[in-house]
Deep mutational scan, measured.
Amino acid sequence: MEVRTIKVFTTVDNINLHTQVVDMSMTYGQQFGPTYLDGADVTKIKPHNSHEGKTFYVLPNDDTLRVEAFEYYHTTDPSFLGRYMSALNHTKKWKYPQVNGLTSIKWADNNCYLATALLTLQQIELKFNPPALQDAYYRARAGEAANFCALILAYCNKTVGELGDVRETMSYLFQHANLDSCKRVLNVVCKTCGQQQTTLKGVEAVMYMGTLSYEQFKKGVQIPCTCGKQATKYLVQQESPFVMMSAPPAQYELKHGTFTCASEYTGNYQCGHYKHITSKETLYCIDGALLTKSSEYKGPITDVFYKENSYTTTIK
């Protein structure tokens, strides 16, 4: 009895394709271990004539594949690729409408935090270190965002349907971005203890939790000093293409032309909904596939993004 075979390709990165001759009487799992086709788990399936010449994702289970996976995804987590594939199996079914010149995501599976993050990423200057993220990001900007969303979920250790947080998501993504040249110098002034300067680099240099107003941050924000008295913390120097200011959701007025974009969060910790506000020729609110415009805006804002380049204080 002759062994019926077909020729397929296996890959971990969709760049390096490895030619395989597979036995049609055995499952993919018996031949390769966990195997995925377009995100779908085909591990328990036997090869079919229609699979001839198709590319299958496999887990990096030998040295060659491990090197290829690390170079593309910059992670050695053995569960990463499987999590990416199972997320992709959902995100490829989502709709990605162009809204006001940006790629958004039609609401499904509690994905409003991903839509808000995706919209924000198209408006701030950011370059990702893992080629996987950078490639998928370019495709997302062009309207094909399924891979990018699935990668975000995998890097953030999230599953489809789980509630997510924009600030946490951005923080994970910033860790995989090139923020080497970003720098922030802060000064804390206390009447009792004097003053202390701190220099922050990388992710810490672009994120701040405690106030939404970048102007206020430049002037000074009140913080408790270690001595128990009130101290003032203010920005001395900022070198970065953008800054992200966050605070627990509270009524906040966004003035046209003073910011790049913002995240609105309605609801409580267990259950809520994100919308995205962007400042173009007027203010726009993007909620999944829905767009509304207004000249002014007041609502429960939790993150505001500002364009920056270089700032030095005039406070002496």
Rank of each mutant, 00 (worst) to 15 (best):
D41N: 15
F80A: 03
F70V: 10
L186N: 05
T211D: 08
I223Q: 12
L133T: 03
F70P: 06
R83K: 15
R4W: 11
Q195N: 15
T282C: 09
Q31S: 13
M85S: 05
H90I: 12
Q196A: 12
C182S: 06
Y311P: 06
K255C: 09
N49S: 14
Y155A: 01
G143Y: 02
T314Q: 12
Y36C: 06
I152R: 01
P241G: 07
I301A: 02
D303V: 01
P60C: 08
S294I: 15
C190D: 02
K95Q: 15
E264S: 07
V189M: 11
H276Y: 06
I105S: 04
F128L: 05
C285W: 04
T91W: 04
V236S: 06
P300F: 15
Y72S: 11
L291E: 06
D135C: 11
F80P: 04
S279C: 06
C190S: 01
T282L: 11
G53N: 15
T199K: 08
E215P: 06
E308M: 13
S295N: 15
L153P: 01
L153K: 00
Y265H: 00
N100V: 09
T302W: 00
L17T: 08
Q222C: 10
V185Q: 07
M244V: 07
R83V: 05
T159W: 08
K54Y: 15
F305M: 06
V189T: 13
I45Y: 13
M209Y: 14
G29E: 08
G267E: 09
Y155H: 05
N61L: 12
S295V: 09
N111G: 03
V58T: 11
D62K: 14
F9Y: 12
R184V: 01
L88T: 05
G272V: 02
R184E: 03
N16M: 12
A87F: 05
E308F: 09
T211P: 01
T120E: 05
A250D: 09
Y36I: 05
E215A: 11
G143W: 02
F174N: 00
K127A: 12
Y155T: 02
Q175W: 07
K255A: 10
K93M: 07
E239I: 15
S171E: 14
A142D: 14
K93R: 13
T314M: 14
Y208P: 00
P300Q: 14
Y265C: 03
V221Q: 07
K54W: 13
D135H: 10
F148D: 01
K46F: 13
S104M: 05
Q123N: 06
F32L: 10
M85A: 06
Y274K: 00
G220P: 10
G272M: 00
T198P: 04
E2I: 12
G299Y: 00
G33N: 04
G29K: 09
D41E: 07
I152A: 11
A289G: 12
P97V: 14
V12A: 11
T5G: 08
Q122D: 04
N147C: 11
I315H: 15
N309G: 12
E204H: 14
L133F: 04
H176D: 03
L254F: 00
N100F: 07
H256M: 12
H51V: 07
G164H: 02
S279Q: 05
S213M: 02
Y72A: 12
A231D: 01
A117D: 03
L291N: 08
Y265N: 02
A108I: 07
D77K: 06
N89D: 12
C182R: 04
G299Q: 02
A150Y: 03
S213V: 03
E239G: 02
D41Y: 08
S295P: 10
C112L: 03
C112I: 02
N110C: 04
Q122N: 02
K229G: 15
L114M: 09
P130A: 10
D109S: 10
K255V: 09
Q238R: 01
L133G: 02
N187H: 14
L254I: 01
S263V: 07
K293I: 13
T266K: 11
P248H: 07
M244I: 05
L114A: 00
R83W: 05
L121F: 11
A115F: 05
K183H: 09
K46L: 12
E239H: 11
Q251K: 11
Q123P: 03
Q134P: 03
Q20W: 09
Q237S: 14
V206G: 01
Q238S: 01
T43Q: 15
L121R: 03
S104H: 03
